[in-house]
């Protein structure tokens, strides 16, 4: 009898906790959406997404500069980190000795574990002066260093362990026989990698990049510390930007004192959630599908 009760308790405990977890994204979505309804009632969705006037005190909320900044920073980080990740993943899964792999695991672990504020600090100490004093004069530009490019560089470093891990997982699923068949046909090791491994893992690579982009898009503190936080639209990577997460993080203090401001910021969080969740669901689905085959 006692055993029965125990069994029931622990079973329901397991099911309840699993349900709570699976409901979290929906609860977050509903809460953030319901909080952002007031700003929808005043302004149309077109105006919110594609207007570039940001004057909270007058009730004008145009998210375009923030969205563009976010995309720009994300793109730069992607361009900088993607080639490095692919090359390193190829070396670690195809060429490297067992000892090097054993050393690299903790390195990737630690890179992934370093808090974003430390990356931000490193950015302020190294990347910002480098961009401002070394790179910008090369192009005859004036820059304080607090720029979209700095944000992109810091983000690139932060995304490396994340993307690299997924790429390695994907490369490891390629059966050894495939590479061996290619080798026995007279292809060199590199040719086998290029034609067998990379081709076989195409979906895996694309998914890893997609998920890396999603992570970069939502990263807050490190970017906010180096990106300059100026509301403007500019194509020049040496200018300051103001990504969406930084907007939310910077203004939470005053958002309750200006009408509709909190609603607009919750809309920003909602946009962030939807974009990141959709990207994640899509690419994870791709990964799941290829793994099942």
């Amino acid at each position: 009898m006692k055993f029965r009760v125990l069994q029931n308790i622990s079973n329901s405990w397991m099911i309840v906790s699993l349900c709570i977890i699976l409901l979290i994204p929906f609860i977050i979505g509903v809460v953030l959406y319901s909080k952002s309804i007031p700003v929808f009632e005043i302004t149309s969705i077109d105006q919110l997404l594609f207007s570039s006037t940001w004057k909270p005190t007058q009730g004008l909320f145009g998210f375009l500069p923030f969205i563009l900044s976010s995309l720009y920073v994300t793109l730069i980080s992607f361009v900088l980190s993607a080639p490095l990740c692919v090359l390193a993943a190829i070396y670690l899964t195809q060429f490297a000795s067992k000892r090097l792999v054993l050393i690299m695991y903790p390195v990737i672990d630690i890179l992934a574990g370093i808090p974003s504020v430390i990356y931000g600090m490193w950015g302020i100490l190294i990347v910002v002066p480098f961009v401002g004093e070394t790179l910008a004069p090369l192009f005859n530009l004036n820059s304080s260093g607090y720029s979209i490019l700095s944000g992109g560089i810091v983000l690139a470093v932060m995304c490396i362990p994340y993307v690299l891990n997924m790429l390695m997982e994907s490369f490891k699923t390629v059966p050894m026989g495939l590479v061996e068949a290619s080798l026995s046909l007279g292809a060199s090791k590199w040719e086998s990698i290029k034609h067998a491994v990379l081709k076989k893992c195409r979906t895996g690579i694309i998914s890893a990049f997609g998920l890396g982009l999603a992570k970069a898009f939502g990263e807050t503190l490190a970017v906010m510390m180096v990106v300059g936080n100026v509301v403007q639209i500019s194509g020049n990577p040496f200018d300051a930007g103001y990504p969406l997460p930084a907007l939310i993080a910077n203004n939470y203090g005053e958002m309750l004192s200006i009408p509709l401001y909190d609603s607009a910021l919750m809309l920003a969080s909602f946009i962030l959630l939807v974009v990141v969740l959709l990207i994640n669901l899509f690419f994870r689905y791709l990964i799941c599908k290829t793994q099942r085959k």
């Binding site: 994204p25 977050i28 990263e219 807050t220 969080s269 959630l273 669901l281 994870r284």
Partner: peptide, 22 residues
Amino acid sequence: IRYMLDALWGIPSIVYGAFGFM
């Protein structure tokens, strides 16, 4: 379930922050 959990892992912490605040 694993698929959902992986997607959940990807949600940026600032969104959790905003949600927690609300």
